[in-house]
Design a protein around this nucleic acid. Structure first.
Lengths: 236, 236
DNA sequence: CGTGCTCTTGATAGTGTTCAAGAACTGTGG
DNA sequence: CCACAGTTCTTGAACACTATCAAGAGCACG
């Protein structure tokens, strides 16, 4: 797992500002800029594993990453899918604990590593940043409470519709924009997100196709009728 | 738990710092609470509702509180059960959003209200407190990621065993201490924690009784064999 | 001692999983 | 560019698990 195909370079300040502008805003933190390096990762590369210790945080420049937990039988549960602009791994770093989850690229991904001391330093000298971090943690908690409720109460069909709604954002799907892009996940990953068996997932995708909610192009899933899909999701 | 002397702005903030220094788990809180505005609540009283705005945080002096989300069909999903010593509601307050969940007493409960400005004041004058808050948020996130994985992957039987393991702590059950206390939740609440129907829950409790994992006294559930129960839970 | 709520039990139906086997796709080396 | 090997995807059938519905029992509280 230690293939060093990655190539690093120091980033320009403006780049970092650009990256982080939408999420946690680190733009005014000088220290962070110094040791930031960019890495290019291939598909299916593990960034960190559950149970290991964080050495810093990662900021995603491009690509998509799955955050998952491995269950008893080795079956993964996907907790979240992150995309460019997202910050990753700060939670475990801040609580000084092991990663409670693992991270793996879903496609070719570029990310920027910010060493722990830089990030901590920035936080202690900048209460706005601290506030942002807390807000981000809170947001995650809200989403997770929702996930718990959905998983505990809704049938698979509704959960799948809900997951597709979420993935519309993750994969920047613009309904008006035709078929150019789509949700590009393996059936297994999607099943591990929804919390079901791959076979069940496939059968439901067929139902959705029959109901003209989606279309598929090989592995890719295209959203045909977002409104109707939302109804199927039966959101709270 | 390292302590750093800090300059408190008011007497009240100083007290709050004192309370919160040891972590969000407020073990030494009781002396302070004598002077504060304490509220005594009966069983089944709602403290705050999902969708409303926080005005401060609550610290639980005695009693137990369920944190829950209401699903589509009005069915509650219990996310967490808090007990004396726990701090409640800081998440939504810090992120300046609506409560994503509701809180209701499970039994007679005493709690102390800390207004928003006092808590924020304490945090801004005390970086250790801020750190503790972040750690607590992180801990919650870890627990929730676990819950998601369990709900998505494990059958009800294992989830129930796991829930009982958690409730052993919530209800301070000491195996050596005989039958004096037990888990005191309605069957419905327990079902809403595990994510199943009340009837299914009852049948499984009978199985556990038959297998001598637990005993029941009316509503109360007593743990007979914690080790075996842990095995049934099939924890990761 | 009712009255309303919680708890319990049985029967039935529905939902989702598992197993097995084949098809389709992907990437690789010749 | 093709053949091959390994994944991934798909489909069917049987079965297991869990929910739902209905109805009665037990309990707590006024």
């Amino acid at each position: 797992m230690k293939r060093k195909t990655s190539h690093s370079e120091t980033m320009q300040n403006s780049e970092i500002e650009e990256i982080l502008f939408g999420g946690i805003d680190l733009s005014r933190i000088e220290e962070i800029h110094k040791n930031s390096t960019q890495k290019k990762l291939k598909k299916n590369q593990i960034i960190f594993l559950e149970g290991t210790r964080p050495l810093g945080v990662y900021s995603i420049t491009s690509g998509r990453i799955k955050i998952y937990k491995t269950g008893v039988e080795g079956k993964d549960q996907i907790i979240q899918i992150l995309k460019s602009g997202d910050l990753m791994g700060y939670r475990a770093m801040l609580s000084e604990e092991q990663y409670p989850v693992s991270a793996e690229t879903l496609e070719e991904t570029t990310l920027c590593f910010i060493p722990k001391k830089d990030f901590i330093g920035a936080m202690s000298s900048n209460s706005d940043l601290t506030k942002e971090v807390i807000k981000s943690l809170s947001k995650d908690l809200t989403n997770m409470a929702d996930s718990i409720t959905v998983l505990a109460q809704k049938p698979v069909r509704e959960r799948l519709a809900g997951a597709l709604m979420v993935l519309i954002d993750t994969y920047d799907i613009d309904e008006s924009k035709g078929v150019s892009n789509g949700i590009n996940l393996t059936r297994e990953d999607l099943a591990n997100m929804v919390g079901t068996a791959t076979e069940t997932l496939i059968r439901l995708l067929h139902d959705f196709k029959y109901e003209q909610l989606i279309e598929t192009q090989g592995r890719k899933i295209l959203i045909k009728n977002k409104e109707k899909l939302k109804k199927v999701a039966n959101l709270i």
